[in-house]
Design a protein around this nucleic acid. Sequence first.
DNA 1: ATAAATCCTACCAGTGCGGTCGGGTTATGA
DNA 2: TCATAACCCGACCGCACTGGTAGGATTTAT
Lengths: 167, 167
Amino acid sequence: MIFSSKAEYGVRLMVELGRQSPEHPTSLKAIADAEGLPLAYLEQVVARLRKAGLVMSARGAHGGYWLARPAEKIAMDEVVYALEGTIAPMECFVHDHTERVLCSHEPDAGRGCATKLLWMRVQGGVIRSLQTTTLAELVEFSRRHERSEPEPPEPDLSAPRRAAVVA
Amino acid sequence: MIFSSKAEYGVRLMVELGRQSPEHPTSLKAIADAEGLPLAYLEQVVARLRKAGLVMSARGAHGGYWLARPAEKIAMDEVVYALEGTIAPMECFVHDHTERVLCSHEPDAGRGCATKLLWMRVQGGVIRSLQTTTLAELVEFSRRHERSEPEPPEPDLSAPRRAAVVA
DNA sequence: ATAAATCCTACCAGTGCGGTCGGGTTATGA
DNA sequence: TCATAACCCGACCGCACTGGTAGGATTTAT
């Protein structure tokens, strides 16, 4: 259960754009250098963000990218959705524009998919987490943590302390 | 962002076991037939559940599997964890035995990982959803949704596992 | 004109996933 | 006692998808 690296890179890119003033555009090369990411790959990533209307671009020399909206107005579910294409815990959640959710097994007859309840709850949890986080928060977080001092007692963001990795 | 089919199959298997009385074990073959899943693959799946102590088994003729605990006492985060190995939205969440969380990029120097905040919230959302769902709920759900008549034995072997979803 | 940058499409190698196969080992029961 | 039903285990395999590269075309500032 993992987001692809497109999500990772794309979010980093958005944060980086959020740190810049939107006066003049930021080039991909600058971001690639700052984050140590492959430029050619970033191009593919940022294309998704552009098509989703989250960033704008200018071509030519001194061109680059900037946020289409202020970071406070950008919820992270939009960003992740643009990057990943879908936010679903299971591929049987691919549903057409209607409300029908069909599962690969138990195709239509018989009982409803027993796992559906579970995956819907998980999906709800994920989407809620993303919706309630704005890009501005991440920008702020990254500003606080840049190489000045050790982390202040970070107000625990609802991450349970239970052992996340059981051997 | 997707769980693997191990999670899907494993959860179905657990639900199926929850529907049976724990008096006598249920054979994998029965479950495989009921759900239309490949038996040999189910063996791998159930092995994880057994190693995690969620199911017990008896070998030999009339052997099979049963829940190690009543379904009310089984939270789904245990199940998914046993099946997936880890519940993390991003592989940079692989952290060693200490508390350090290290990210693939921005290795040690400089600011903390800007995306960390986001992924931790997502992870929290997922884990909370799973923790607050018990196997008993899923069993109950599946009981509610079963048609009165048992499904006709439709031998749809060789049903394409993968592409059946996208219309 | 040249350089800096976005844009676009095709391609490629590795890995992980879903699944199979073959062969144990253990228990029942005829 | 012996066949059979089931669990158990490890090796293997094709393929789709991911992460990344290559190469070029277009646009714009200097």
